[in-house]
Design a protein around this nucleic acid. Sequence first.
DNA 1: CCCTTTTCACCTAGGTGGTAAGAT
DNA 2: ATCTTACCACCTAGGTGAAAAGGG
Lengths: 233, 233
Amino acid sequence: GWAGEGTGASGKNRHVCHAAARLEMGSLWEEFNRLGTEMIVTKAGRRMFPTFQVKLSGLDPLADYVLLMDFIPLDDKRYRWGWGNGGRGPDLGVLSPSLPCRYAFHSSSWLAAGRAEPAAPGRVHFHPDSPAKGAQWMRQIVSFDKLKLTNNLLDDNGHIILNSMHRYQPRFHVVFVDPRRDSERFAHQNFKSFSFPETQFMAVTAYQNHRITQLKIASNPFAKGFRDGDPEP
Amino acid sequence: GWAGEGTGASGKNRHVCHAAARLEMGSLWEEFNRLGTEMIVTKAGRRMFPTFQVKLSGLDPLADYVLLMDFIPLDDKRYRWGWGNGGRGPDLGVLSPSLPCRYAFHSSSWLAAGRAEPAAPGRVHFHPDSPAKGAQWMRQIVSFDKLKLTNNLLDDNGHIILNSMHRYQPRFHVVFVDPRRDSERFAHQNFKSFSFPETQFMAVTAYQNHRITQLKIASNPFAKGFRDGDPEP
DNA sequence: CCCTTTTCACCTAGGTGGTAAGAT
DNA sequence: ATCTTACCACCTAGGTGAAAAGGG
């Protein structure tokens, strides 16, 4: 899908106002999102799967850009996985309205369980090729496969710090590197942000929804060792 | 060791005139060089071992630099490995004066065998982190471990093209990215080059000197599978 | 005969979820 | 009971020289 910035196109520098980003592997993201995507967080840092990848267009080929990502809490709730009412049935009343729960009647599901932990320091992840020319960024798919998620509040590896059992929305930012002397004054005009709703996820230390586990195993090459049935290329 | 530019320090831009480069793993390079370093070239491209790595100093921390390497033919000769005169003894008369031949009396050695092949297109290898600030380059050792050597004249992977059985001198260049409009006019002032004689080598498709093979096996982690004796950490 | 190419077993390096133990 | 951690077997991905086959 395509995503625009929340603030509208007005008042943006001409180097970013036409920027557009198409999410790659959109159908895979949607398949996960229908089940309720979970992303593992570990002390050492864990990659995302699917990897966040975009195809860019509308940049100035000759201008310099920095690409980065950050992660926004989707609500102020903490979640837990289970039945929540002693096994008498799913308590749908406490489900977040936007949270997929297609299988709530067949198994456990996500339940709101109190207010969110205080937000960790809002780190950002710069794409390691930054800065680079617009032509370079548009030449091929931009992949954030070096990005890692951690639940270690004291992490000093520069990873993204998230709270487990909380929901997040990945955000992607294109920042024009303004060569003007007083470029700070135009900072608010020099970037454009993109949010793809199908990439939102629950941070977990271990998978809760078995269907998510199976889809990860089926689609992540590094998990091939856990596949049992005959493959379908 | 430390290496300066061949042309002297005069007439250089202030952003490069104090630049200095120290070769890392110098003792390992010298150990290879005493035996006569050989580097494998393949159609698909092969890394160098030892890897060319330098520690930089004297850059402007806030200025942009591009780092790159190229390879200069050391002479206009083609070489072959063997005795050269039917087994009656080494023909030292055809040995290049600068070529190590410590073991010429105990085994085969390198012999000049005609004029060099026409030089392949003189490609360069840009360090993939280029361009970057001087501070970034000086922060830690700069490693050219992505550089690959090939003997394929039609290579389209951007690898360095060399002729097998020819000798080469790696060269390292620090290029200041001049922000001035007419920077082309100052191009000759904006770079500084370094040559470390201990890094010269013979390009080969298969190792000729068994002592080189053994030293590669002993010192390259990827060749650990060929070690037999007990290790020395 | 000398050099090059291809294939291979054996490594390094690091990304998977499973599992059992640990923590709260 | 629920969540977290540490370790593991099993992968992907790719860098080694050995050995055999290929080419002039």
